[in-house]
Amino acid sequence: MTAELALLLAQDGVANGAIYVLAALGIVLVFLVTRVVFVPFGDLIAYASLTLAALQEGRRPGIVWLVLLLAGLALLFELAGRQRKWGRALLAYGVLPCLPVAAAFLLAGRALPPLVEMALTIGLILPIAPLLYRIAFRPIADASVLVLLIVAVVLHFAISGIALMVFGPEGARPRLLTTASFEIGGLFFPGQMLLMLAASALATLLLALFFGFTLSGKALRATAVNRVGARLVGIRPGAAGATAFLLASALAAASGILIGPVTTLFYDSGFVIGLKAFVGAIIGGLVSYPGAVLGALFVGLLESFTAFWNSALKEVVVFAVLVPVLILRSALQRHGAEEEPEEDGL
Results as ranks from 00 to 15, higher is better:
Arg334Thr: 06
Leu232Glu: 11
Ile45Lys: 02
Ala80Asn: 11
Ala108Ser: 14
Pro237His: 00
Tyr20Asp: 15
Leu164Val: 12
Trp86Met: 03
Phe182Lys: 07
Met196Thr: 09
Leu73Ser: 09
Ala242Cys: 02
Val147Lys: 04
Val30His: 12
Ser144Thr: 13
Gln56Pro: 04
Val33Phe: 01
Leu246Trp: 05
Val153Pro: 02
Pro113Ala: 10
Val321Glu: 00
Leu22Phe: 07
Leu322Gln: 10
Ala15Ile: 10
Pro127Tyr: 03
Leu313Cys: 03
Gln333Pro: 05
Leu132Ile: 11
Val116Pro: 01
Ala240Thr: 04
Leu187Trp: 04
Leu197Asn: 10
Ala320Ile: 01
Ala281Phe: 09
Leu91Ala: 09
Ala3Arg: 13
Gly229Ser: 00
Val28Gln: 09
Gly270Pro: 13
Ala252Leu: 03
Val116Gln: 08
Leu332Val: 09
Tyr267Gln: 08
Leu25Asn: 11
Ile273Phe: 13
Val116Asn: 02
Ser304Glu: 05
Val325Glu: 02
Gly300Arg: 12
Gly256Leu: 08
Phe271Gln: 09
Ile283Val: 14
Val321Gly: 04
Phe271Ala: 11
Pro324Lys: 04
Ala48Val: 08
Phe137Gly: 06
Pro324Leu: 06
Leu207Pro: 05
Leu194Gln: 11
Phe305Lys: 06
Gly72Leu: 15
Ala224Trp: 00
Gln333Thr: 10
Leu301Asp: 06
Glu340Phe: 15
Pro61His: 07
Tyr289His: 13
Tyr133Gly: 06
Tyr267Arg: 10
Ser330Leu: 10
Leu301Pro: 07
His156Arg: 15
Gly185Lys: 06
Phe271Trp: 14
Leu302Asp: 02
